[in-house]
Every structure is written in structure tokens, then in C-alpha cells.
Amino acid sequence: MRYEAPTTLDDAVGLLAAEQGVAKVLAGGTDLLVAIRSGRLEPDLVVDLKRIEEMTTVTPEDGGFRVGAAVPSVRLGQHEGLVAMWPGVVEAAGLIGSTQVQSRATLAGNLCNASPAADSVPAMVAAGAKASIVGPNGRRDVPVEDVPAGPGKLSLEKGEIVASILLPGKPERTGDAYLRFIPRTEMDIAVVGVGAVVTLGTDGTIEAARIVLGAVGPRVVVADKAAQALVGTKGDKAAMEALSQAVSAACTPIDDKRGTREYRIQVAGTLAKRTVAIALERAKG
């Protein structure tokens, strides 16, 4: 295995594109190193992004924020503008692993690990985040939900890197939230995760909503019917019940060591109600 730490994005792309064997990108490394250590992954080349300046910054853009691929979660929580605008995304990123892991783990890495249970992904998808992908053929922007192709699989071409994630500007009277269910209080992988964004009209009616579910299918689930159950309501009890049922109906989970299929479906509905309640409070300001 070779280790490279280029200082420009072009060099990083060049290294990845030229590698004949298995090449891997190292951002925070909190998933990659575990895979290497266990023998599941034997890369010939690892390209560390943390020496590339543009990858390590959070910069304002079009009313939102562009987050470099090597920015660790801990820095998101320290960024006042980001916390004020997308608290749900920041909180979701803040749930990944321990305080120690927070110092390393990144939004882009969480996305590119392509786990359906990734905490930050439902929150980012709900917020309408876009991934900026750079490769041998230039730069392209895609919705973050299109980056994972399935568990552990990415839709990236050879040599392509997710260079940054753009969290768009937040519309007025909009709130976001993310909650996950885990058996302990910390350190677990989500059994179910729910990201929600709601936008209110001036009279307090929900005008728009996005509900995104994690760990209940091979990729995150954008639950449009669940969102529709909220639109036009004020988030009253009946709307929340409809939301809950629509969320449960959108789940296609599996039985595994972290939870049963039946359990995930039931809890997803409950969690959606709790997540939307927080997002509504935030939308009211």
C-alpha cells in the first residue's frame, strides 16, 4: 500500500486516475482504516485529502455553505452560521461515533462510505444538499442521494472524488431536524434515522416538506408521500398520524443484528413524528 497526501485537487485526481490497483480516498478515515485493519479492504493506494486547502474549509456560497470533503464534524458544530442555518445537519453529523471520531469523520466520508445507516445523509438529503464531484473529466454537481448506488457502492467514475458538499440557502420559515434510534445513548449505528425539513407559510401552514429515512432500505428513502401528508396542515395530531403511517409504508428494511424488519418499520413512524415536531418548532423560529 502507498500513502499519498497531495496538496492540490488536480494531483489527487491524477493519482487516483493513474492507479492500476485498488485506490481509496482518505478523508477522516474512520471507516477506511477499520476496513483496512480487518482485511476487508487491501488498497494499493490511499490518497489523503487533508493537505488540500479547499477541502478543509467551510465557505459561504449562494446564501448557503460549501463544506470541503475533509472538514471534520467537530468543525461544523463550531461554525455558528452553519449551526444557525442547518442545525439538523450539524446535529446529524454530530451523532457519528464518539467525540474522538467527531474530530476526524466528515460529511463527504459519511456519504461515500455508502452505508444506508449513515447519520448525516438523511439530514443532508432533506436539506437538498449537492455533492460537487471532481474527476478526470472535470466537475459535476449531483444531489447527495445520487452518490451512493447501494450498500458500500458509489456512482462515482474512476478517479472521481466528492470534493465538497453544498448546503443550499435555507428558505424563510424553514426548519430542519434529524433523529435516529439507537439502543444505547451513543456509539451505535442507527437502527432507523429520520431527516426532516419543513417550510411554513405566513399563516403557519406547512407549505413544503421533505422527509428522508435512513437504515430502512438499501439507500436512503425520500418519503414523498409522508411529506405530502404534512403539506397543507399545521402538523396537528391527525397529520402526524398520517405522516407516521406513510413513513412506515415507505420502509423496506431487513432483519439484522441491529433490529428486526418489523421493529424498524414501527419505530420509523414514531421517530418521524418526533423529528418533524422539532423541525416545526425551528421553522416557527
Binding site: 444505547r184 445513548t185 451513543e186 456509539m187 451505535d188 449505528i189 443484528k257 441491529r258
Partner: peptide
């Protein structure tokens, strides 16, 4: 679940 991720011993916040 042969690891501390999924063999869930109590953590301080529990």
C-alpha cells in the same frame, strides 16, 4: 457482533 460497535456494553451517557 464480534466488536464493541454491536456488542453493546454500557457507555458513560447510558
Amino acid at each position: 457482533n464480534a466488536g464493541f460497535l454491536d456488542y453493546r456494553v454500557p457507555v458513560a451517557s447510558d
